[in-house]
Design a protein around this nucleic acid. Sequence first.
RNA 1: GGCUCCGUAGCUCAAUGGAUAGAGCAACUGCCUUCUAAGCAGUAGGUUGUUGGUUCGAUCCCAACCGGAGUCACCA
Length: 591
Amino acid sequence: MKLKIAQTLAEALHELYQIDWQTDTSIIQNTKKEFEGDFTIVVFPFVKMAHKSPEMVANELGQYFTQKLHCSFNVVKGFLNLMFPDTLWLDFLRKNSRNLQFGYVKTEENEPVTLIEFSSPNTNKPLHLGHIRNNLLGDSVSRILSACGKNVVKVNLVNDRGIHICKSMLAWQKFGNGETPESSHTKGDHLVGKYYVEFDKHYKAQVKELEEKGVSKEEAEKQAPLMVEAQDMLRRWENNDPEVRALWQQMNNWVYDGFDMTYKQLGIVFNKVYYESQTYLLGKALVDEGLKKGVFYHRNDQAVCVDLHDKGLDEKVLLRSDGTSVYMTQDLGTAQLRYEEFHPQKMIYVVGNEQNYHFDVLKIVLGEKLGKTFGKAIYHLSYGMVELPNGKMKSREGTVVDADDLMEEMIFQAKEKTSELGKNAVENVNELYEMIGLGALKYFILKVDPKKNMLFNPEESIDFNGNTAPFIQYTHARIKSLLRKAADNGIDYALDSVSVNSAENSEKDLIKSLYEFPQVVQQAGDTMSPALIANYIFALAQNFNSFYQETPIFKEENAGKRGLRLQISELTALVIKNGMSLLGIGVPEKM
RNA sequence: GGCUCCGUAGCUCAAUGGAUAGAGCAACUGCCUUCUAAGCAGUAGGUUGUUGGUUCGAUCCCAACCGGAGUCACCA
């Protein structure tokens, strides 16, 4: 509709004022509630070229629209409000109310792959709140892009090697007494995380001891026996020492078992999992290629570098002086590997904004220095940090909010709240608690603009009232209850079966809001922002609840009016369901 | 210090350069004999960090300053 209006506007401008205007739907807005109308055009941009007053331009355009599109209009200052007959909205409702895929675009057979990497955990500690934001964002954006017709492939890149893993391994060897997840009834990732903390504790003590003997802090950190041993272990790992590799396998497997449980509870599934131990060497060929091309060079100390001063960045090391690879090396390699495997049109990396610089470099090195076409396909979906009231989370200092604990707490709160309200007379109560508790958590995180830092206060547990998932879930459950009642009473409310040709303002407001849903999904896809979906659904639910409160449905004797209201309710429930599903949140039939 | 991002109600967050800057929480007032009160209606709360600029119009764009975060590794 907006497109039609924009096209008509272009014609009108040309005919009336000889203005050539590029059709652009963004100038067509929804009329604000305080004013009368369906769509609004701001005419200020055209008054200068038309050499007329804003009111005159608006009126003349209004006349034109009346003739072409059979609408009426009013003018307030420079704002032209267009009003369409109710049948426009009723037709929309009739066409879409039973379309279960409403808002979703079907993925074409030949649609190229859109690759999205997220989660990317280290295997030395369990997942925490920061990872939750990453996982929820990645998962939700995947769902949204799929709904926009993209062919999405979700990948995870597990950082399963490196000094941090060796630290956990070493501490377990020294202090673990053979403890296993089974023997201690501890989730595997938590057990391994415990020894990571254990390492740090003993390491700090050693550093302190050395410092007391007069060794400088810097030297003490290098000389501490635990650190020396950990580094030795890493070297043995790289040399394929069977003993170290066996321990590494065993502890990583514990962690994977733990991660699997966490992912399962979060509702997250990957199409492919990469392991850094299998990919970290891949970038070396690309580095050689760059050296041959002359875009990289050996520094005096033999480290391979790239000079990015022409891009406003610094010199960056791509290969250590001993020939081993760094983070950037392996990211160059995995990018190429993925490109060859999937030929994606886009490679999205969901990674925190602390790595903005890294991705700037990655894009330039691949795309411009090495001239790879897939360099341009890289998109860093950079999200803000989750902060606690007293600042950032630090895993070694124990100021983290653990992912599993948080989920468990949310589900528990859902249970408490539900019994408090006396609403647990539902089958599958445990499923309901989970839906509400995890829904509240997911919504709390996803409703915030991804690129912004956000605050989480563990003291004030997440609300179940107001702008929250339970509010929206509750709205859905109430609608379902209405629809069940209609079915029980044999009421057929399909618009083709009842006679309606007009709608009241409150009804039209809701229909217009529902009409927006597909556009919101598209916009959320374009901007990769689940927050847009969340805000939209909340506004819709609010809108519906007012309607629900003020407008009786079953007391209405006019079958046409009653049918219309039920039909609006049905599509509202569907949009809530489909929208929440894009956030990875389920909605109950009853609550 | 260089670069990047952010500053909106007491708190957490919204607002494609457009009409009187909106929600939720917290506070206060009403509404369950009525389709589910995890709800609805209402009151109060703002110099959109500051100062300039761009224009018909700026929370949004530009500049400077103030305040905060991130980053500037042969860590990932």
